[in-house]
Write a protein that binds this DNA or RNA. Structure first.
Lengths: 352, 352
DNA sequence: TGTTAGCACTCTACATAAACGAGTGCTAAC
DNA sequence: GTTAGCACTCGTTTATGTAGAGTGCTAACA
């Protein structure tokens, strides 16, 4: 059996209605509120077909129908139609260029959560493709060495190394010179084994130290070894009864709080990269078990200068995919406009 | 009517029993499980008195009694008895001295949440009383200046300043020297107007710049102007039915997520400073409306070198105050041991 | 005078049953 | 192919009854 135009319309009507009410939708409702001008009986026949095709189900015999994961999938892939809507003005927020990437991200997450009424997450940027601007080593006494690393976009990171002994100021000076003249302008990815080895040799007696420093630098830039994730609007899930019962809500919020599993999700999303950079996971498609009653829409953002990350919106399976995807697209576009003509003056971040 | 010994024992029994079960406790229960050897009828008479005194209430006519806020207050202030208990071993966690304060704090919050089964919060430290170790200025080109600030305890902060023009390397060098020779060893609080003015004069043509730098430094150290708060274990509240219904849970988690109101709470807690540095807020005593079904126990921690903050445990009003307060005390003591013998450079070694 | 046994009473929680209604599938007629 | 009609299903609501926990009060007891 194939999905003719009428069936598609009915499926779309069911999904949209269910989106608004959260209640199973019956044949009479569709008959009355759609522009198909068909009696409920006809709708019923079609619905039986749709059910046979696995696109909708009845929660129980005498109830209306709700979409299945497969139904949502079809809708997202082929049936969605852009509906006019007030493009939410985030510009005001973003325009006041926050000077810290971290803060900007948190604000974006919060803003999106308020705008959409869903939960949101956003990863801290990865700097793997960002160019090194300079490294500055300073002795701290006490056998400790402070390394401050500045990358493109004026992001500042720092790390402290424990050494066997203190280093003489003039040695420090030449080390600084050595590192900067060799690494300046390279991205983290480009600092490979070959270069490290090369530097080690040039450094002579400080070879081991150079290696140690570079490792620490790599660690620091890789954002403390683990991907940072910020979440916001977790409590929005209480707006959707199907997610509000103790068990589900607790698990869900725990997942959002712990963030470990979100990390897996983000990794997968980075691998797949859907159309227009937007990715949709529906229910059981989700790699995260505790979120199988949810859908997640993810997008990859770019702040210019190789600073990239992922942003995600988490809601019930009946989330308003059109609105969410539009909002994300708008946001991405605005980020692009704001950060594309990088006049080399944007964010800085202070390490801790 | 006054609270004689027997009434006190009964009240204590009621509170402890309610703590464990979460159910209103009846006269028969007390009669059987307490060491008073009284019949339920006698207990009933006493309970009627306790109710008249406003220490306990019946949720409804044919139910047992539960403590009121006033009852809890009396218990916390006078009736609590230390019960032997496994002092939870956090040492293992803490011993692996994380070198980033932020991470340490997050870990502590998480650990406490796991140990107590309540939600926790912890403020980032304030560095107002921490001594400056050194400041390092570096030109970044493009009219930008990077200031890296290191304070006692090897906390590193940094900030970027926008200037009218770039500064010559030798000027930078003398500025660095000027700042460090004058500010080294001072706390943020000690860097007052007088010193700033003094430095400004010494700096000659760079006077304005010095002022700008010092302001930025102060901002950076003050932790971005706002108190950082980390929370953990928010989902623990679902373990307590009285907090688990949609409305309450949602509000509570929202409060924990947003943190604004927690900030007020912390401020108040810093002002009051209860006995042994521990503060207890019960129900309606709470300055935060959304937490009026909860109790919060706060303590002020110190990591040595003037690094201070507040830690708090949020649970139902029937929380195990004894355990919570013990745990906090233990933690504080362990922090003390771990951070007290901070071996500073000799010159800094004047006890505070 | 303090304690206790006994009892009537209250109120919640739970179970059962009946009534309701939304929605269906099927059939027959258009 | 569409639709009206109808019997049927099943969850939701409402009413009713019952069991049990716990109380307050009274009267008897030590």
């Amino acid at each position: 059996m194939d999905l003719d135009d009428r069936k598609a319309k009915i499926l779309r009507a069911i999904i949209q209605n269910y989106q608004e009410t959260g209640e199973p939708v019956g044949s009479r409702t569709i008959s009355k509120y759609s522009d198909l001008n068909l009696s409920s009986a006809t709708i019923r026949n079609e619905m039986a077909d749709l059910e046979e095709m696995g696109l909708i189900v009845q929660p129980h015999t005498s109830a209306g129908r709700i979409p299945t994961d497969k139904g949502y999938r079809l809708y997202v892939d082929e049936l969605m139609e852009a509906k006019d809507q007030e493009v939410t003005e985030m510009k005001d927020f973003l325009i006041q260029r926050v000077d810290r990437v971290e803060l900007l991200l948190k604000q974006m997450a919060k803003l999106l959560a308020m705008n959409t009424n869903y939960a949101t997450m956003i990863t801290g940027p990865s700097y793997n493709n960002t160019k090194l601007k300079f490294i500055q080593l300073s002795g701290m006494g006490d056998h400790k060495l402070l390394a401050v690393i500045v990358v493109e976009g004026n992001i500042v990171k720092n790390t402290i190394l424990d050494l066997d002994r203190d280093i003489e100021p003039q040695d420090l000076l030449s080390l600084n010179l050595l590192l900067n003249s060799n690494l300046n302008g390279l991205t983290l990815n480009e600092i490979n084994l070959g270069i490290v080895k090369d530097l080690e040799e040039q450094a002579g007696e400080f070879g081991g130290l150079v290696r140690k420093i570079l490792n620490a630098v790599a660690d620091a830039i890789r954002n403390d070894g683990g991907m940072q994730i910020y979440t916001s609007g977790a409590t929005n899930i209480f707006k959707y009864p199907e997610l509000s019962d103790g068990q589900t809500a607790s698990e869900l919020i725990h997942t959002l709080e712990e963030k470990d599993q979100l990390r897996d999700l983000v990794k997968q999303s980075l691998d797949e990269d859907g159309k227009e950079g937007i990715q949709v996971y529906i229910g059981e498609e989700m790699p995260v078990q505790t979120m199988k009653d949810c859908s997640v829409v993810t997008a990859n953002y770019e702040l210019g200068g190789g600073i990239r990350g992922t942003i995600g919106i988490i809601g019930p399976k009946r989330m308003d995919y059109v609105k969410v995807m539009d909002t994300l697209k708008t946001l991405m576009a605005q980020l692009d406009i704001l950060f594309r003509p990088v006049v080399e003056e944007p964010e800085d971040e202070r390490g801790e």
